[in-house]
Structures are given as C-alpha cells and as structure tokens.
Nucleic acid binder design. Structure first.
Length: 292
DNA sequence: CGCATATGAAAAG
DNA sequence: TTTTCCTATGCGT
C-alpha cells in the first residue's frame, strides 16, 4: 500500500521502535544486494526516520550516510516485536534488530521487495529531494501548494497524469489520485492549465487532510461520512465474508459498479500505464471555451 | 496448488 | 513503449 501516507507512517513507527537504540543490521537473504550497506549500519544507533513523498530516509549516529528506501509497487517494511527473533522468510533485503536490555525482547524490521534500498551521501539525498514536488504530509515550505500549481496551471497534460508525477506533488499514488478527483468532481482528462487556482487550493487542502488521516489509520480512507453506509454496503457485496483490508473508496477499483453518489457505472481506462477510475456523471467531460 | 494482479519508478530499447 | 524489480493477496481449480 505504498502511497505517501505509508512512508510517513513507517517513518513514525521506525523512529518509535528504534530511535535512540543501537541496532543490528543485516541483509539475510538479500543475495548480496545490500550486505555491504547493512554492514555499514550494523551496531550504530538509529537516530530517526523521515519521509518525503514515497521516499523514506533513516539517519544513524556516527555516519553521514543516510539509508534511503523506496518500496516501489510491492515492497514491504514490516516492524514487529517478540520474545524470540524469527528466522527471516523470503528475500529480506534489510533486517534491523534491537534487543531490550531489561527483558531481552526483540524488535525487528524486515524489508522485502523494495525498489531502492541504498546508502546516500547528504548531497545525494538533497539531490533526490530536490527533484520531488511538495509533499502534503510535510510541514511548512516543504508542503507549498503554489509550487505544484506552477506546474499544473501551465501544463497541457491531463490533471490525472499530473497528479501522479512525483515532481509535481510528492506522495500521491493511484488511489489518492482517483479519489481526490472524484471528491472534487474534476474531469480527470481536462488539461492542467484549464483548472482555476481556487479549485487547486481546495484540492490541496483536502489532500492534506486525507493523507493525514491515512497516516493515522494506516490506510487510505476517502469516503465522506454521508456516503459511508452506501460504501460499506457496496464493499460488502465483493467481500464475500472476508475481512476487508483496504479502505472504502468512491471509484478506485470500483469499475462497473454503481457510483455511490449518482448510481452511474464507474469507468476505468489505462492512462500513462496506470488504471484510472472515475464516474462519468459526477466528473463530466470538461469543455473549454474554445470547444464550446 | 498455480496464476493474475497491484497503491511505483527506473532502466532498457 | 516495454521490461524489470520479484512481495503479497485474491481467486480459480
């Protein structure tokens, strides 16, 4: 589930679990891909983790190098604790372990399937962050919607495509994109430059709230209270008694099903290699003055 | 059990 | 535009 909220939540959880502690770092089944990196971190105190967009950074004492993790589509970083450290399962690229001195309990974090797991110099980290857009989950100037507007307001690309570009807004993924456009009744295919700045400011403010909620509950929840009952009922039909893992959604992965607001069939189409979902009635095709 | 699919992004061609 | 990374889940058999 790696959209921005996932990485910010992991940064919090990593800091809570390991911050101020000396960690053992290893790359048990990393097939040699991060053994050197793990060795450089082994035995150091973990200071803190933070995130920018979908990128996670972890700082350690006594080295300038910063651990950089990007989960990609299916990477996972799992943090857990127990009396006994379990054997690693699967391709564990990085394992961090800390042992409580008083009771001997262990806390560990296993990283699997990540697109990036590497050590960066401060310069490399800065260069990486420099090519990312503002992140709704960061504070102050790091979360400046005007920077995103400078790109969106002048672009001929579709809003749907722009929202997925990490140098426009950092942290949005396919779910937040589809749901944000629906919540604001925006036609995904309209050009960025056809938008008005006021609309973008509303969308950004909403995004800040939605993503903070996502961090708090550790999943993407986008359905307004007044539509929750309908969303739950609709989701139930497809659950078949199983426990629902993902959050409720208006349009994401609901293609062919009736829109929760107007009943029209939700549509899907591949746009820039990703599945886009929208309601053709709630998000009608935008026509510019020239087209009218 | 096997197989298709997924919330991403960079490299290859 | 296609391939790669190679995890976890959900579904059909």
């Amino acid at each position: 589930m790696p959209e921005g909220h996932t990485l910010h939540r992991l940064a919090i959880d990593l800091t809570d679990a390991f911050g101020g502690s000396v960690v053992a770092a290893s790359s048990p089944q990393g097939q040699g891909r991060f053994e050197d990196g793990a060795a450089q971190l082994d035995g150091r105190e973990l200071i803190a983790a933070d995130a920018w967009g979908k990128h996670l950074f972890v700082r350690f004492a006594g080295t300038e190098l910063v651990l950089h993790v990007h989960l990609g589509l299916y990477g996972k970083l799992r943090i857990a604790g127990a009396d006994v450290l379990p054997d690693p399962v699967g391709q564990v690229r990085l394992r961090l372990v800390t042992t409580d001195r008083s009771d001997g309990r262990v806390t560990w974090a296993d990283l699997r399937g990540a697109t990036a797991c590497e050590l960066l110099t401060p310069e490399e980290r800065d260069a990486l962050v420099a090519r990312l857009g503002p992140d709704p989950l960061r504070e102050g100037a790091d979360a400046d919607p005007d920077r995103a507007w400078a790109r969106i307001g002048r672009s001929r690309k579709s809003v749907a495509a722009l929202l997925m570009e990490q140098d426009v807004v950092a942290g949005i993924g396919n779910v937040y994109r589809a749901e944000l456009l629906f919540r604001h009744r925006v036609d995904p295919f309209r050009e960025g430059r056809s938008m008005r700045v006021g609309r973008w400011q509303e969308m950004w403010a909403d995004l800040v709230e939605l993503m903070h909620l996502g961090v708090a509950v550790n999943r993407i929840e986008t359905v307004r209270p007044e539509h929750e009952a309908a969303a739950r009922a609709a989701a139930k039909q497809y659950e078949g008694g199983r426990r629902r893992r993902s959050g409720l959604s208006y349009v994401y992965r609901r293609d062919g099903q009736p829109c929760l607001v107007c009943g029209t069939q939700v549509r899907t189409e591949v746009l820039v290699a990703r599945n886009l979902f929208w309601c053709p009635r709630c998000q009608p095709r935008f026509r510019s003055r020239a087209q009218r």
